[in-house]
Amino acid sequence: MQEGIIIKGIGGFYYVETESKDIFECRARGKFRKKNITPLVGDRVVIEVTDNNSGYIIDIKERRSQLIRPAVSNVDQVVVVFSIKEPYINYTLLDRILVQIEKNKLDTILCFSKSDLVTEEEYNEVSRIYIDAGYKVIKTDVVNNNGIEELKGLLRDKITVFAGPSGVGKSTLFNVLQDKVKMETGEISSKISRGKHTTRHAQLINLEHDSYIVDTPGFSMLDLSHIDEFELMHYFREFKEYLGRCKFSSCLHLNEKGCAIIESVENGLLSRRRYDNYKLFLLEIKNNRRISK
């Protein structure tokens, strides 16, 4: 018996890296299917080796965290990669991703890539929104190697998922951060200003002894239907200071009188752009509840 971590899963085969850094191609025992348990990239597992490079997964250790989309377990933090230009930043998508990460109680690093394409003023205008919201923000530029060492330091001794839309330079960042796996990089479509999807499955890559990064398939929309309407406000970090100050305890911060969140937005203490996305998501959740009844 050996212990290891699943670094990749394709078509029912799971590739397990053991402590000795050997990699075994494994199938899961039937007991997992009977219990409706699917092994995930990031799972710590026990395997039974049948020959030199293959075996079976016989046990999955308890997961300390689990993401549904992408399907990865035991993640410590998420690096959310967005470019400000080429493609232009989609604030609604960014906030939607951040809500999902907050729900999963994971640490977040917001990485603005391709910083060589924007002025300092343009970068500050965008980054200030998220710094004020309480996020760790860094800017990277692979052309001039700016921010790469800082990012490497933040990845040390953690399992880190990289998330974000296609075309923002995630694969390019991966190729700069490590040389074990060459990620295919895609050009931006001139018609839709989005990148081609170049990553087909989640894959965990070892940077050093206990540091892993996960590349995940690109995505553009995330479903919020599993979030309760009274839950959403807690996933906007900057709201927390004002929660409980509203006139009505049942305030959803939509259009109620005496709402501390609305007043703070009007007074410039909270980002109107972020608040507008909160309202958009809240109405989406309420509409979904109405349709499902």
Rank of each mutant, 00 (worst) to 15 (best):
P70A: 05
I188G: 05
R272N: 12
G4P: 09
L243Q: 12
R69V: 04
E3G: 13
K8Y: 00
D223Q: 05
N255Y: 14
K293Y: 09
H201F: 08
R96G: 07
S211G: 04
N277R: 09
E19W: 13
V81R: 00
G11D: 15
K196Q: 11
T216L: 05
Q100D: 06
I6F: 10
I6Q: 06
E238L: 01
P87S: 14
I129R: 00
N52T: 15
K152G: 04
K31L: 15
P87G: 14
D43L: 04
T18R: 14
R33A: 11
V78P: 00
K85R: 15
T199K: 09
I138M: 03
Q2D: 00
Y15D: 02
D228S: 15
T172G: 08
G167H: 07
F219S: 04
V118S: 09
V79D: 01
Y275E: 08
H253Y: 06
E86K: 14
E266F: 10
N36T: 00
I227Y: 01
N206W: 14
S190N: 05
E187M: 13
D107Q: 01
D141R: 02
A163H: 03
L177S: 08
K196A: 09
R27F: 02
D51H: 12
D215C: 03
S20H: 15
N145H: 04
L270W: 08
Y88F: 15
A202V: 02
R156K: 10
I138Y: 06
G4C: 11
G218A: 07
F239P: 01
Q203W: 00
G169Y: 09
E284A: 04
R290P: 01
V137Q: 04
M233P: 08
I7A: 02
Y56T: 11
Q2N: 14
L154D: 09
Y14P: 00
A260V: 01
L254I: 14
Y212N: 00
K136Y: 03
G134Q: 10
V78W: 00
F248E: 10
E231V: 04
K180Q: 11
H197F: 11
N144Q: 07
G12Y: 02
F112Q: 02
Y14I: 03
I58S: 10
R29N: 11
E238M: 03
V168D: 04
E208I: 05
V176I: 11
N36C: 02
N53K: 13
L243G: 12
N104S: 06
G195V: 03
